[in-house]
Design a protein around this nucleic acid. Sequence first.
DNA 1: TCCTAAATAGTAATGAATATCAGATAGTAA
DNA 2: TTACTATCTGATATTCATTACTATTTAGGA
Lengths: 163, 163
Amino acid sequence: MPPLKLPPDSLDLAQILKASGVKATVQRLEIYRELSGSMQHPDAEAIYRGVRRRIPTVSLDTVYRTLLLFLKLGLVSSLRLPHERIRFDPNLTPHHHLVCTRCGRVQDFTHPDFDALKVPEAAQSWGVIEKMQVEIRGQCERCARQTKPGRSRSLIQTKEEPK
Amino acid sequence: MPPLKLPPDSLDLAQILKASGVKATVQRLEIYRELSGSMQHPDAEAIYRGVRRRIPTVSLDTVYRTLLLFLKLGLVSSLRLPHERIRFDPNLTPHHHLVCTRCGRVQDFTHPDFDALKVPEAAQSWGVIEKMQVEIRGQCERCARQTKPGRSRSLIQTKEEPK
DNA sequence: TCCTAAATAGTAATGAATATCAGATAGTAA
DNA sequence: TTACTATCTGATATTCATTACTATTTAGGA
């Protein structure tokens, strides 16, 4: 399951899926079409509602499974990670986060370039800004060292918990 | 409940709470102490385990309620928001997010300054980087217009869903 | 000390996200 | 085309983080 990271126009999604060694089912194609046609960053439920208009028998579980598969293949991204629980941070001074997509651990970092960032005007007109923060996602060294390919269905295994 | 945003050394937390019109209970003080003593960005469960060493009868619900209260008062922040479900994003090109902490809606934005950011070396040595993204949190204009103070227990009301 | 709103403990409920498994399907080879 | 087989799907059950409920206790002012 090689990490293909092309922005797939739905045309060749079937090819990409096959090249990744998974089947190009109608459910998968429709789920991708539904997602790619939205600017709303929909959740699984919203995608489910949309897809069901064309495939009335599709199940919510298939939608979840497919979206997580797309995630694993790098065909889409997600705002928060699967299995990610709420973590709290007492540090109110400006800082940023390194988040491991496998173990979920978070590490702070700071950098002058990041502190110098100004909130763009586009955001000002969007609403009332509370905070701005950079998140870097990846795999911490420890996780990266372990079995290279992420075989699990979801991205975060929460077994090894903080502290 | 005025938004006091001082970084409270646990000494005056009691004062801050009272000034905010809520009671300074031992549970609240201990929960804050537990959180502020950690660099791990712990979740509610981890904080619960720690606090229970000193207050064996504390309940997990109290921990959750207290942390959400701290969030609302701006005394702590959270990595992801309460009630936030997984949202998917088909856009693989570099972009950033405006997230409304009240309705949960997400809007993309781009900005040359943000695109010019380079992954700092500190992050390179941390592990294998997959992506870097800026998140701006706040209230979208629509939500900001409504009843000013956030009265809800949790920060996101998920009733009004995407699309 | 007494009083009362607010907070807590204990527990039940909720709901997003996963797992299980029997039956259906895609893709291949003949 | 047909048959074959690993992969997928749909339906359902389950898990588990998070939130709600309620009787009881407590903080903090009178």
